[in-house]
Amino acid sequence: MSAAPADLPDRGGLNADVLSADARREALALLGLCSPGIVLVGIIIVLPIGWLFWLSLFDETGMLSGANYARVVEQASYVRTFITTFEVAFIVTGLCVLLGYPLAYMLSQLPRRAASICLIFVILPFWTSVLVRTYAWLVILQRKGLLNTWLMDLGVISQPLPLAHNFTGVLIGMTHILLPFLVLPLYASMKAIDADYLRAAMNLGAPPTATFWQIFFPLSLPGLAAGVVIVFILCLGFFVTPALMGGGKVIMWAMRMEQTTSLYSNWGAGSALGVVLLAVTLGLLGVFRWLLGARATSAWGAR
């Protein structure tokens, strides 16, 4: 392996050429090992998306124009889609934080054995089909579903509540599917918090509430931010749950893309939607990296 000779102190002279040639060969061989994966990703993902981007630059008459992008901003139905999408994304992310933070906090405070048993319930849904979980919510929430039947049998309500095939259904279904994406990074960052900080704070007389808010909570923020960004980004491009639980009334970004391309065969407009979605996704990730990078370094410097 080339790394081993390269680690030796440089003796200058005779072997340098041979060693560098060897290192080049080694790097080439390693690149060769990666190449099947790179070629496959290039053909199946990069090429079509680049092609779609190219298409989005031309209008129906084949002229180079920004018409597809102008329509995305101007046409009322598209604007409504964006508003719905961001509305859903904000509410679902908020719900995930509200439900996920206490859960991750509890998991981080439990003894290891209990925590790993509880973690199974967080990770198992990852392995369960999104369709199965969406189906389960449809069964529970629809007009003649379990919840409405039970509530009516108990006499709590006289009319079935509209819980599925609308906005509420989309929110419940998406929160359920995206919650683990928030809990797992948050839990990992909470486990990394040094308990000595908390002991020190309490030793110095801070009550538990103050210790939590002034020490634990700020230290858990990077993990929370990571989870929030992941959930938000996944919300923006989510397709299955809104398509099945929205009852055709909640049109989100991905559904609009599907309709524009499959139903109306308008590839230019659909591609423009896709390009903007990708740009927003990558932009959010970039901002997050930049912010967290700054935070991490500042925290490091303060120590």
Binding site: A27, C34, E258
Partner: peptide
Amino acid sequence: ALRLAGFINAVLTASLIIPVILIGIG
């Protein structure tokens, strides 16, 4: 020992970040 390891990693894991709907349509 791989040059551009960060870039190659990003390419190989791209499908985790790119919206699935875009991969589907593409």
